[in-house]
Design a protein around this nucleic acid. Structure first.
Length: 374
DNA sequence: GTGGGTTGACAGGAACATGG
DNA sequence: CCATGTTCCTGTCAACCCAC
């Protein structure tokens, strides 16, 4: 939630928010646009993984990574003059000094242009409302996946190359085994609205922009799907810039900063055994896993260490409980040999039955019908 | 700069409503 | 019955804040 901005502005209905950067086409035009995009993607139906581009050719590490994942360069390469060109350039221009980047940012700020993430050509007049749509291409819809996990993995690789992330909005339509057959997905900048319960103590804000992009992942039984999973894009529009990845953690969706089991194990060892500091761990995990954790922030590492600590404590408590020991109680138990002997059962005198004139009928044995004859 | 506590944001599941 | 949308709840994440 942007600071000082009413919730309804940031989380408004689709197409009504202030951050609408893509002009809303008429409905038939949008359909045509989507069809064109799909045709563009369709020509890669039988694609083969490409060889890495030769040295010196403009190809970011992210593109290379997703080529390895099966995406062609053309698929991943946004159309020139779009913001994503700058996005990719931003990733390519890593050697550029922070000072230079700051100067560029300052120049753009003075010219009223978006930040370096929007990557406009220098010295040329820029449109006030750039269209980021081609940079944020929707995922291909012509692919079938054996599992939802496979779909998710492929989707994640594609959306990462396009500068956005997808999240699950809801899951539904369970089969007899209890497995979901459909997931509603959306851009991480969109999705469900959130009614804040903030008491104004913290200056926190939502990262949502009310992005209308949405799609669904469905497992369909009928031919030609044969119980396979596929993606159906319901709205391809975004209302925000793609994330740049120019600096780790800046503007990068949390979904691409998530530390998985391998990273967590590495952190655990380096923190506990090597006694590395938070700063050392952050730098270390960025460079030790290739591009996988290149966007991880210091706060991500700290939160992961806290999670590891919580899990360790939980495990220790579970082990203690399994041994019959107290877990997290503020006291300890007296050993059995020091406890007093158990009390012997004693005979308790029972109450005599009530006299007949003091007895009342049992309500449970009565009829619920008040009008019933006795 | 770092570690840790605190607190708001939000992902995801579940239940329910609605309409074809 | 199925598809879709909405709301509520809970656990986790993200980031603010402060002491050191």
């Amino acid at each position: 939630m942007p600071r000082g901005q009413p919730k309804t502005a940031a989380m408004g209905q689709h197409g009504q928010h202030q951050l609408q950067m893509t002009p809303q086409p008429a409905q038939p035009q949008m359909q045509q646009q989507m069809q064109q995009q799909q045709q563009q993607l369709h020509q890669f139906h039988n694609f083969q993984p490409q060889n890495p581009p030769p040295q010196g050719q403009a190809a970011s590490s992210a593109i290379h990574q997703h080529q390895q994942a099966g995406y062609t360069q053309q698929q991943l390469q946004p159309i020139p003059n779009q913001s994503a060109t700058g996005t990719q350039q931003g990733q390519q221009q890593q050697p550029q000094s922070l000072q230079q980047q700051q100067q560029l940012h300052d120049q753009q700020a003075q010219q009223g242009q978006p930040g370096p993430s929007s990557g406009q050509g220098q010295g040329q007049p820029q449109p006030a409302r750039p269209n980021f749509q081609m940079a944020l291409l929707p995922p291909p819809q012509d692919r079938l996946y054996p599992t939802f996990e496979a779909l998710q993995t492929d989707l994640k690789a594609f959306t990462r190359s396009q500068g956005y992330a997808c999240v699950i909005v809801s899951s539904l339509n369970r089969d007899p085994d209890g497995h979901y057959r459909r997931y509603n997905l959306c851009c991480s900048k969109g999705g469900k609205t959130y009614t804040s319960h903030s008491r104004g103590i913290r200056q926190s804000r939502s990262t949502k922009t009310g992005c209308p992009m949405k799609m669904k992942a469905v497992q369909e039984k009928a031919w030609p799907y044969d119980d396979k999973w596929r993606v159906v894009v319901q709205c391809a529009e975004h209302n925000h810039e793609p994330f740049t990845g120019e600096q780790p953690g800046v503007n990068v969706p949390a979904q691409f900063r998530k530390i998985e089991q391998d990273g967590a194990r590495w952190l655990k060892i380096m923190h506990r055994d090597a006694q590395c500091t938070l700063r050392q761990l952050t730098i270390g995990i960025r460079i030790s896993f290739g591009d996988k954790y290149q966007y991880v922030k210091k706060s991500d590492v700290r939160n992961m260490l806290a999670k590891i600590k919580r899990e360790d404590e939980r495990k220790a408590a579970a082990d203690a409980a399994a041994q019959g020991l107290p877990t997290n109680l503020p006291y300890t138990l007296i050993p059995p040999e020091h406890q007093p002997p158990p009390l012997q059962p004693t005979n308790v005198e029972m109450m005599p039955p009530l006299p007949s004139d003091l007895q009342v009928p049992d309500p449970d044995l009565e009829s619920d019908d008040d009008d019933a004859e006795p």
